[in-house]
Design a protein around this nucleic acid. Sequence first.
DNA 1: GAGGAAGTGGCAACTTGCTGCCACCGCCTC
DNA 2: GAGGCGGTGGCAGCAAGTTGCCACTTCCTC
Lengths: 222, 222
Amino acid sequence: MTVDPDRNVTLRGEQELAERAGHLFLGAEREFVCAAGDLRTWAMPGMRARIVEARRRTATPLTVRKLFNPQVLGDERAERHLFEVADRGAHVRICTTGLPYETIVIDDRVAILAGPPVRGERAYTVVRSPDVVRSVSSLFRATWDAATELAEFRRVRPPVLGQESLRILAMLGAGHKDEAAARELGLSLRTYRRRVAELMRLLDARSRFEAGLRARELGLTG
Amino acid sequence: MTVDPDRNVTLRGEQELAERAGHLFLGAEREFVCAAGDLRTWAMPGMRARIVEARRRTATPLTVRKLFNPQVLGDERAERHLFEVADRGAHVRICTTGLPYETIVIDDRVAILAGPPVRGERAYTVVRSPDVVRSVSSLFRATWDAATELAEFRRVRPPVLGQESLRILAMLGAGHKDEAAARELGLSLRTYRRRVAELMRLLDARSRFEAGLRARELGLTG
DNA sequence: GAGGAAGTGGCAACTTGCTGCCACCGCCTC
DNA sequence: GAGGCGGTGGCAGCAAGTTGCCACTTCCTC
C-alpha cells in the first residue's frame, strides 16, 4: 500500500479489495465497525474464512459493530446469517435511515468507503488521514447510537420464514422428537437440528420453551 | 362379604370400604370405571399404594375410565393429579352434567355406589346383581360417550395456576437453564424439574417447545 | 477445470433435560 | 407414637438435544 497517510487509495472490485486491503481486516486489533444497506459486504472471495481463522488465533476481544437497514431482514437466509454473526459476539443494529454506501472503520485508524456499483463492480476507497477517519467514525457512532438492537428490532417485526421453517415449527409444535421430525421431513438428524438451532437464533430464544413462546407470540404457528 | 349376589351390602365410611371391599379393587381384571364430582374417591387410607402395587405386578392391561365434573379443574393440585392419572394410561373425561353420587363399576360384575355424606362420612353400597350392574354400567357408558376428553376439554379452559407455577413459566420463558432457574426459585434441581414435568402435563405438551407454545396460547405468560 | 461458497450429513463429545428409586421431613389422624 | 400421605431432594441412569469437526456434493464464477 502507500506510505503517505493522506493519500487515499481506490480499489476496484472486491477481488482487488481482498488482495490489497485484506491485511487491514486481518490486522484489526480493537474495533471493527461496518455499515451497509445489504449483506454483500462479505462477498470477498476467500476472505471470510481467513478472517475467522485469524480471529480464532488471537485472544484479543475485538469489538465488532454492524449496522444494517431493515431490508436485510426481508429474507430468511440473510436474516439467519445476521443472527449467526450476532451470536458470535458481534453487535448488530438496524437503523431505518438509509445507508446507501458501505462504510468500514477499523480501529479508528483506517476507513474503507464503498462507492456505487459500476457495471456490477464497486470501488472501495481506503482512507488513512486521521481527521477524515475520525470524522467518519463519529458519524457512524451517531447513527449507531440512534439505531436499534437487532433482537429488539425483531420484537416488533416477525421474521419472514420459508416453507421448510414453518414445517419445522409445526413438527416442534406437535411435540415430535427430533428423530421422528427429521424422518418425516426427509432430513438427516444433523440437518434438522441445525435448522432448529437457526430458528432459535431467529426467534432470539435460548431454549426450546422460549422458542415456542415466541413462535406463538409472533403468530408463526397455525 | 356375602354369598348372595342379590343382597346389596352397605359400608359406612372409606375406612370400612377399604377394609371390606378392597379386594374388589385389587381384583379388577378388565375394566375399572368411576364417575365422581370431586376427587375424594381415593381418600381410602393405604389403598392407593396397594392398588398401584397390584397393578404393577400384573401384565393385564386394565382399562380405566374416570369421569369428572368440570369443577375438579378448579384448582391446580387436583388438576395435576388428574393429568398424572391420565398419563399412567387411564382415560379421563369431563362431563358438564352433574355427577352427584360417586359410581364405580368393576369388570361389569360389581358396582359401588356412594350416597351423600352424613356427618362427613359417606355410605357405599356394593351391588352384585347382574341386571343392576349392567344397568348402571350402561348408564355410565352413555354419559361417558357424551363427555369430553380431558385434553380436549382443556383446550378451551386454561388451567388455573398458582404463583409458583407462574414463576416457573417465567423462568422457562426467560430461557434460563434448569439449574439457574431452580437456584433463583430456591428449589432443588429435582423439584424444579418435577414442577416443569407437571406443568407440561397440565399443558398437554410432549416437549418444552410445545409447552411454550401452549403457555402463550393460553395467555399464561406476561 | 480450479477454486470458493453454501449446504448436507455422519460422527463424536458434551450438555441438558427426564425420571425412577429411595430416604427423609412435617403434618395429620387414629 | 405408629402409620399414612404429600412433598422434597439426592442420586443414578438414560434419553434428548447441542455443537464442533470433517468429508462430500452442488452450484457458481473465473
